[in-house]
């Protein structure tokens, strides 16, 4: 069933926004600890909306690292968004304007992407605007709350909240694997490679963002050759 309204987007974005709030909260505390000012952490969240990229960038900024170092780190860690945006561009209705895309691109995150590509129809721009508002607010306001609360909140609470974002990712890829044996195999290959890159000598020296790309591309290329999907795929 096609539900392409602004309201439906808001509803779908709400759990993402709630999830982001807690992680952004932890990011705010982390940034303060690294020596950034509170407003700097909030400014980073408001302009980036990339959890891994931001967490990698804060220590570089804190020690006044070079812009080249910062740019290359962001490029490697955020490389996956290039692939995600290629996929997302196929999910938007053909009449989506350049201005709409300039806004939608801003908020293409892993979780918004996951929900959007889970739909079996083309997305209307109103749905997209709806789904990106709660995560954007959750991410930015969560960071603000984090830097305001600082270390007032007990460590055990912020620690347990930090797993929320991974829980959300699991809630997306596990049912996808259940639905399709080939997808399950693809996920299994990707995870196996990921474990290799994390634990094996030399391989583990590679930056995490780059590793994710290698694992996912290798698994997906293999499955695309072995078990191509037909029709609407």
């Amino acid at each position: 069933m096609e539900e392409n309204t602004f309201k439906k987007g808001l509803i779908d974005g709400l759990p993402i926004g709630i999830g982001y709030f807690s992680v952004a909260f932890a990011f705010g505390i982390f940034a303060l600890r690294c020596g950034l000012k509170g407003w700097q952490a909030v400014a980073i969240s408001a302009t980036n909306l990339t959890s891994a990229g931001q967490i990698a960038a804060v220590p570089i900024i804190a020690v006044q690292g070079s812009l080249v170092e910062l740019a290359s780190t962001q490029l490697v860690i955020n490389m996956r968004y290039f692939l995600m945006s290629v996929v997302l561009s196929q999910k938007l209705k053909p009449e989506t304007t350049v201005l709409d895309k300039l806004i939608i691109a801003w908020c293409n995150t892993d979780e918004i992407f996951a929900v959007c590509t889970g739909k079996d129809y083309r997305l209307d721009k109103r749905y997209c605007f709806g789904i990106l508002i709660p995560p954007y607010l959750g991410w930015t306001l969560g960071t603000l709350a984090g830097v305001l609360a600082g270390d007032v909140l007990p460590a055990i609470i912020t620690d347990s909240l930090s797993i929320a974002i991974y829980g959300m990712l699991i809630a997306v890829f596990v049912p996808a694997g259940e639905n399709d044996r080939n997808m399950l195999m693809c996920i299994a290959i990707s995870v196996a490679l990921s474990l290799c890159f994390f634990y094996l000598p030399y391989l583990r020296e590679l930056p995490g963002g780059f590793t994710i790309i290698i694992c996912a591309v290798a698994a997906s290329v293999f499955m695309a050759v072995k078990a191509p999907v037909g029709g609407d795929g």
């Binding site: 996956r80 692939l83 995600m84 290629v86 996929v87 196929q90 892993d110 992407f113 996951a114 590509t117 990712l169 997306v172 890829f173 996808a176 694997g177 080939n182 997808m183 693809c186 996920i187 290959i189 990707s190 995870v191 490679l193 990921s194 590793t211 994710i212 790309i213 694992c215 996912a216 591309v217 698994a219 997906s220 290329v221 499955m223 695309a224 078990a227 191509p228 999907v229 795929g233």
Partner: peptide, 13 residues
């Protein structure tokens, strides 16, 4: 096919 498989393999990795 690649675009079908890539999102979940990224999330899993």
């Amino acid at each position: 096919s690649f675009l079908y498989y890539i999102p979940n393999s990224i999330l899993a990795a």
